[in-house]
């Protein structure tokens, strides 16, 4: 059974900030959903190979040749903040 600590842990991993009310609500709701998901344990899957893609997939390779790509200006057009042709982010290390 999932508890508030689990929700806080998952939120931390997912870089989500939750207030107290959200934590309570999500603990209950996610608990109910995971209870439902637990019905998967009724199926015997000991010798079953997992499926990631349902149609035949193969590794896609191509020659290492330069192809057309987005110009820098277009790539940066949606940036919340940019400087000297680069994305700009808040400081990573403290002073």
């Amino acid at each position: 059974m999932i508890d508030k600590k689990d929700v806080e842990y998952a939120a931390g991993l997912a870089q989500l900030k939750l207030d107290e009310e959200e934590k309570e609500k999500y603990t209950e709701q996610i608990g109910e959903i995971l209870d439902y998901v637990d019905k998967l344990s009724e199926l015997d899957t000991d010798d079953v190979v997992p499926t990631a893609y349902t149609v035949p997939m193969k590794n896609v390779l191509r020659k290492d040749e330069v192809q057309e790509s987005l110009p820098r200006e277009k790539s940066l057009a949606n940036a919340p903040d940019k400087k000297d042709g680069q994305f700009r982010a808040p400081k990573i290390m403290s002073d």
Binding site: Y9, A11, L40, V48
Partner: peptide, 23 residues
């Protein structure tokens, strides 16, 4: 959050791998 929890260390086999097998 459900997805992050299901993929987190210690739960991956019970949730994600199990679901892929059921798939």
């Amino acid at each position: 959050m459900i997805g992050t929890y299901a993929l987190s260390s210690g739960y991956y086999d019970a949730y994600y791998l199990k679901a892929q097998k059921v798939r």
